[in-house]
């Protein structure tokens, strides 16, 4: 049997928020190590990879590996019924065709349970090799969200150009052109406000704004975001999830025709 207990169910609400714009359904692979999810969006342009380690949960038990195919719109309906401070328990039997979500209020005076049907999904899993990226940019996640939102007004694509001086985000279209440059922060009071760049080689790549904006739905999960880039390979946008692990988004670049 599978059982995972989470004292603050807001984390799972945020995770759901972070994936439901890109994915209609996904398989949650549960094992002793934790919960993992890997799925591409419908057009196979981007890929979401989620890792929630078992030791992040307040209680975790997984006797047998279990793949739960979940319709994310259905799960969203259920998670909307939970208060942010509710204690969440997810339960499923081995080989079950349903999963149960139980919400308990902090004072334990209200207990609700929701049973959800699982679906069979034949999802492709891609092997993503360990990669040494030419540029790794760390910046405040709110700043990244703001830049993606602002630039999407100017064009469908964003050019991200990273040198050791800093990182430049550019877009151009009918209105005109927009450029946002961020330099590495010299010194900041709070680590989460820092912009840092580790660069082996300068990189310039072009990406679709639409997907970058979808990735920023994860902003609530982490104060910082990490962008990893190398020439001619997908961008990795990573948000750490506290004691649990991370959510990573991979986005194939646009190339000159």
């Amino acid at each position: 049997m599978f059982e995972a207990r989470l004292v603050q169910c807001s984390m799972l609400k945020k995770v759901l928020e972070a994936i439901k714009e890109l994915l209609n359904e996904a398989t949650f692979d549960c094992s002793d190590a934790g919960i993992q999810l890997q799925a591409m969006d419908n057009s196979h342009v981007s890929l979401v990879s989620l890792n929630l380690r078992s030791d992040g949960f307040d209680k975790y038990r997984c006797d047998r590996n279990l793949s739960m195919g979940i319709n994310l719109a259905s799960m969203t309906k259920i998670m909307k019924c939970a208060g942010n401070d509710d204690v969440l328990t997810i339960k499923a039997q081995d080989n079950a065709d349903n999963v149960m979500f139980m919400f308990e209020s902090q004072n334990q005076e209200k207990v609700s349970d929701y049973d959800m049907k699982l679906i069979n999904l034949d999802q492709e899993h891609l092997g993503i090799p360990e990669t040494d990226y030419s540029c790794i940019i760390k910046m405040p996640s709110g700043e990244f969200a703001r830049i993606c939102r602002d630039l999407s007004q100017f064009g469908e694509s964003v050019v991200i150009s990273c040198t050791k001086e800093g990182v430049k985000f550019s877009a151009a279209g009918d209105v005109g052109a927009a450029n946002i440059k961020l330099a590495q922060t010299a010194n900041v009071d709070k680590e989460e406000e820092a912009v840092t760049i580790e660069m082996q080689e300068p990189v310039t790549l072009t990406f679709a704004c639409r997907y970058l904006n979808s990735f920023t739905k994860a902003t609530a999960l982490s104060p910082q975001v990490q962008l990893s880039m190398s020439a001619d390979v997908p961008l990795v946008v990573e948000y750490k999830i506290g004691d649990f692990g991370h959510i990573r988004y991979y986005l194939a670049p646009k190339i000159e025709e």
């Binding site: 591409m40 342009v45 899993h125 891609l126 694509s157 646009k254 190339i255 025709e257």
Partner: peptide, 14 residues
């Protein structure tokens, strides 16, 4: 113009 690449161009099926 730029052409959008597909994720499967980069990573193989596991």
């Amino acid at each position: 113009t730029n052409k959008q690449n597909n994720m499967k161009k980069y990573y193989d099926r596991r």
